[in-house]
Design a protein around this nucleic acid. Structure first.
Length: 873
RNA sequence: GCCGGAGUGGCGGAAUGGUAGACGCGCAGGUCUUAGGAACCUGUGUUCUUGCGAGCGUGUGGGUUCGAGUCCCACCUCCGGCACCA
């Protein structure tokens, strides 16, 4: 059955033959290759996709959404005369290939190559106009040579250092993981349990770029939400560091960081993080047992476990006291894990009156509370964190928060008790991984010291291994490659031991966009002249899941390269757009009581149970036809009091709602698929997939095909009306592509075809520009039609049609006539008609007169060509 | 809790403060056909009306305006991110 339908599709619109023909043509003619030595007097456009990790499961329909959008822009800009750089490559290091190697003994390189071939074939089957001669692969030694080279630049600038860092260690994976790779105490990949261990690690000093990473956002055209996420991640705050002298320890003070120095008169106790170095110094003998027990208990908890139990704050008194530098009074020093060792100084002055966490702690342990900001009269809460006049604060009394802050900081500074201080939440970047399938870090150890290898020793390639099992020690699998491990330090000529850590997957993606510019250069990372021409990336399209990490790390490396004089811009990505996630098809779900078999209203289902009876319920996927909408929700037609859940879910293997692009292309062709991916809705929006929707764009292409092949193309000169339709379409499509509104651009193309179907024939002078407009969206069918219209060359570089203003205005327009804001008639006038004539015509309409009660209106409004509004007397 | 974004037909969505629902899916009727799950044409927010036309309608309640999906205020719901960062 399906085959018969397919044959019919093929017969009327032979997309398979067309698509393979043109893919072959582009490949053999290198249509989209742009030479390294390019004519730099032309304007350039660099349109970049976030390169994929070539996973074993191939592309899903979410990938091609962003890729299609960028491809449309690339093809459009080429036709606009730009030199277009539109490359692709592979972010191919990573854990899955290594884990596969563990299970099967297959070398990660084999797996990676296989996956890349699959991805490459899939991307080619979609007809993307990448310059395949610029493909990069992060696992290629010719590529990671330069990743290592950048690491050496970081090292020599003091931005890469070793530290003993408490890190997440995952026994199952045999490696450490970054904070962001551990979710709820389990590894992001695989879901294995993880624990904290202190290990020697390479760390990148991203924090010294915190301020610039923050400031640089101002000059980028990025989604506001992404900038905001980066700002929050960097987490700049302004405040003060203040020293609190410790009783009986005259030589020691507790330094705290606070953003509210104005509340210091309300600091009634202090808290040290359990890991704080002074805990052991100040704790009194009587308190020692309790404090030690508390410390070891806290060490076993993860950050999450600490914060999960927010409501039950824990802590223990050290027996020691500090002196409040403002009031001079003695206040107790506690240890509590609600204070983080890793932020600020690891110690706080606790001001329960103005801080909810401190209030909670103070209440729990009976510590004094002293308000220093007057809350408003109607304030009913506990701690008051808003603005108000200072109270109980001696010389600060009466000042509002901002004033009080600067006043107290001036005082602290003049007394030598504190200083103004800016703090960031951003931490340095843990850069070590105890894995095999990553870039080796180009460092050797001799006499316990780390030494950079010289540039000419690069690339440091991975040794061949038979075993990929983690060594079980924090050293990782490379420690097992003894021949590789023991080497000579070229600087001294003496035996040395290689670094066995490798780089995290983020490393290769921090700079790949630079290598595309000059991919085969063996002398430098990128030729400076070419870099200056092509950078920055004009349009970067990729998922919002990279809003913080990849985009922050890449910006950091780029700023370092900028400081080192290697690149010419400090920000790499001028404009950034995130494609929205594509969900599975809309699902209609009914709920049924497992025990009784009766339907259960969705509003009564709680956590898999019926709310009233507590019985277990099961979900039943039902077809759309048996559902019905009643006011704002869906119910079963046969039982209107049974509400349904209707929504689309994220595609996942376990849910079984994954759509495979290969199957869609097989059935409808790449052009129809590309068109549907963007016709669904705005690029940046989350939207559900609908295979039936693909039929719509397929039908459209078939109509195009029949319009321009079966119907007669003739050489008559086009009518003014036909020219109007064409030029309006040109204007709409051009504007929509410029602003990435691909869905409405496609709608405009559809409207053109609908209009053209009403014509008896299509003049060649109309057909040609239309095919060019269609080309960025549906390149295969467009090339074929272009050839049939009598051209022997690809249309890829044919100039984009220009819209002519004279055809953008109609001779007559229909203008609605409102009375009191409601449409009562429509009149037909010339767009530039005289205002009074239009108003007279409007008022002469019978229906209008009826609603004006046959009296002259009190007010008359005419927006030329748009609307008449008459206000009745 | 905090910070973003979004709520429009049966569904995806469109709309410089100016006729709400373009375009597509679905549905209904028709044409052609041995056939239709193909193609083409017509219709399709909802209620009343034979028709002309009229009432209602963009999450809820207010407001600004000749005119509000669009601007302002308050609230509700959903999605995404962050979450003891002092």
């Amino acid at each position: 059955m399906i085959r018969r339908a397919q044959r019919r599709k093929m017969a009327t619109y032979p997309f398979k033959a067309i698509e393979s023909k043109w893919q072959t043509y582009w490949e053999s003619h290198k249509t989209f290759h742009i030479p390294v030595e390019v004519d730099t007097s032309n304007p350039k456009f660099y349109v970049l996709d976030m390169f994929p990790y070539p996973s074993g499961s191939g592309l899903h329909v979410g990938h091609p959404e962003g890729y299609t959008a960028s491809d449309i822009v690339a093809r459009y800009k080429r036709m606009r005369g730009f030199n277009v750089l539109h490359p692709i490559g592979w972010d191919a290091f990573g854990l899955p290939a290594e884990q596969y190697a563990l299970r099967t003994g297959t070398h990660p390189r084999i797996t990676t190559e296989k996956n890349i071939s699959r991805f490459r074939a899939q991307l080619k089957s979609l007809g993307f106009s990448y310059d395949w001669d610029r493909e990069v692969d992060t696992t290629d030694p010719d590529y990671f040579r330069w990743t290592q080279w950048i690491f050496l630049r970081l090292f020599e600038r003091g931005l890469a250092y070793e530290a003993e860092v408490p890190v997440w260690w995952c026994d199952a994976l045999g490696t450490t993981l970054a904070n962001e790779e551990v979710i709820d105490g389990k590894s992001d990949i695989g879901g294995h349990p993880c624990e904290r261990r202190k290990l020697r690690q390479w760390v990148l000093r991203i924090t010294s770029y915190a301020e610039r990473l923050l400031q640089g956002l101002e000059e980028t055209d990025w989604p506001a939400s992404t900038k905001e996420m980066q700002r929050n991640w960097i987490g700049r705050s302004e405040g003060a560091e203040i020293d609190f002298p410790i009783q009986d320890h005259a030589d020691q003070a507790i330094r705290v960081y606070t953003t509210r120095p104005d509340t210091i008169f309300g600091a009634t106790y202090m808290v040290l993080a359990p890991e704080h170095s002074l805990v052991g110094v100040i704790t009194t003998p009587e308190a020692l047992d309790g404090v030690t027990a508390y410390q070891s208990q806290a060490a076993r908890k993860s950050d999450l476990e600490r914060s999960e139990l927010q409501n039950e704050k824990t802590g223990v008194f050290t027996g020691a006291y500090a002196q409040n530098p403002a009031t001079g009074s003695l206040i107790p020093i506690w240890v509590a894990d609600y204070v983080l060792a890793t932020y600020g100084t690891g110690a706080i002055m606790a001001v329960p009156g103005q801080d909810e966490r401190d209030w909670e702690f103070a209440e729990q342990f009976g510590l004094p509370i002293r308000r220093t900001v007057q809350p408003p009269e109607d304030f009913t809460g506990n701690a008051f964190t808003g603005d108000g006049p200072a109270i109980n604060s001696e010389f600060l009394n009466g000042f509002h928060v901002a004033e009080a802050k600067s006043c107290i900081i001036d005082w602290l500074e003049s007394e030598g008790k504190g200083t103004r201080k800016i703090n960031y939440k951003l931490r340095d970047w843990l850069f070590s991984r105890q894995r095999y399938w990553g870039e080796p870090i180009p460092i050797v150890f001799e006499d316990g010291g780390a030494h950079a290898l010289p540039d000419d020793a690069l690339p440091i390639t991975l040794p061949e291994l038979e075993e990929f099992r983690p060594s079980g020690s924090p050293e990782g699998p490379l420690a097992l490659a003894t021949d590789w491990l023991h080497t000579i330090n070229p600087a001294t000529g003496r035996p040395a031991r290689r670094e066995t850590n490798t780089m995290p997957q983020w490393a290769g993606s921090c700079w790949y966009f630079l290598r595309y510019i000059d991919p085969h250069n063996t002398d430098v990372l990128v030729d400076p002249g070419l870099e200056k021409y092509w950078m920055p990336v004009d349009l970067y399209i990729g998922g919002a899941e990279h809003a913080v990490l990849h985009l922050l790390y890449a910006r950091f490396w780029h700023m370092v390269l900028y400081d080192a004089g290697i690149v010419s811009t400090s920000e790499p990505f001028a404009k950034l757009v995130h494609q929205g996630m594509i969900l599975g098809e809309l699902e209609y779900t009914a709920w049924r009581n497992v025990n009784t078999g009766a339907w259960v209203c969705a509003s009564k289902v709680m956590d898999g149970r019926e709310r009233d009876s507590g019985d277990e319920v099961e979900s039943v996927r039902i077809v759309e036809e048996v559902a019905e909408k009643v006011s704002d929700h869906f119910v079963l037609k046969e039982a209107p009091d049974i509400r349904l859940d209707v929504r689309a879910f994220k595609m996942s293997k376990s849910r079984g709602n994954v759509v495979n692009p290969d199957e869609i292309i097989e059935q409808y062709g790449a052009d129809a698929f590309r068109l549907y991916e963007l016709f669904m809705g705005p690029l940046e929006q989350v939207k559900p997939w609908s295979t039936r929707g693909v039929q719509g764009t397929f039908r459209f292409l078939r109509r195009v095909w029949m319009l321009l092949t079966e119907r007669k193309i003739d050489d008559t000169s086009p009518s003014v009306e036909q020219l109007r339709v064409l030029h309006k379409t040109i204007a709409r499509v051009s504007e929509d592509i410029e602003s990435l509104r691909m869905n409405t651009a496609i709608a405009a193309l559809m409207e053109f075809v609908n209009a053209a179907y009403k014509w008896s024939s299509v003049p060649r002078a109309i057909a040609k520009p239309f095919v060019l407009l269609l080309a960025p969206f549906a390149p295969h069918i467009s090339e074929e039609l272009w050839e049939q219209l009598g051209h022997s060359q690809s249309l890829a570089y044919v100039p984009w049609p220009e819209s002519q203003a004279q055809y953008l205005v109609d001779e007559f327009v229909k203008v609605p006539v409102q009375v009191n804001g409601k449409v009562r008639a429509t009149i037909q006038v010339a767009p530039d008609a005289d205002k009074n004539q239009v108003l007279e015509l409007a008022k002469s309409n019978k229906n209008v007169q009826r609603f004006l009660n046959n009296k002259p209106p009190r007010r008359e409004i005419y927006v030329p060509g748009r609307i008449v509004n008459l206000v009745a007397a």
